[in-house]
């Protein structure tokens, strides 16, 4: 009603009347742009959040490394290598600290994997 009244008044004063459908169509790109900017806003915070989350997820498995299968260990090692490239983009000292911590986790997984492989070849 307010819109109608507004447009009527505009129309009365000689301004071209914009139909509702056209108004919606014109506002759609603005709405999309707004939504997109909302999504892009915290983009700079994403890598940090995701790398720490991924780091915690990988390194929390060190205490149970012994009970993991060869496939699981291989998967964790691959994830370590992927995460490494992500951490390398960080600034110091965070980069040094987390690369060191990740190296310890990966080395342990490799160590357990090798011991498991050695054990399986021995039993064969």
């Amino acid at each position: 009603m307010t819109f109608k009244y507004m447009f009527k008044r505009h129309n009365d004063s000689g301004v071209k009347r914009i139909p509702h459908s056209l108004l919606l169509r014109r506002s759609l790109p603005i709405v999309i742009l707004l939504l997109f900017s909302c999504a892009l806003g915290p983009l700079h915070a994403w890598p940090e959040v995701s790398f720490k989350h991924e780091f915690e997820d990988i390194c929390s498995r060190t205490s149970e490394a012994e009970s993991l299968s060869i496939g699981e260990l291989n998967m964790l090692i691959v994830r370590c290598d992927k995460l490494r490239t992500l951490i390398e983009k960080e600034g110091d000292p965070e980069r040094t600290i987390y690369l060191n911590r990740l190296r310890m986790c990966k080395d342990l997984f490799v160590y357990v994997l090798e011991s498991k492989k050695a054990a399986t070849t021995e039993t064969k």
């Binding site: 060190t62 205490s63 490394a65 310890m104 986790c105 080395d107 342990l108 490799v110 160590y111 090798e114 011991s115 050695a118």
Partner: peptide, 15 residues
């Protein structure tokens, strides 16, 4: 120490 302080940095032997 957990595992990773000693293995494999200090004690690398598997068996």
């Amino acid at each position: 120490n957990g595992c990773e302080v000693c293995h494999p940095e200090i004690f690398a032997g598997i068996k």
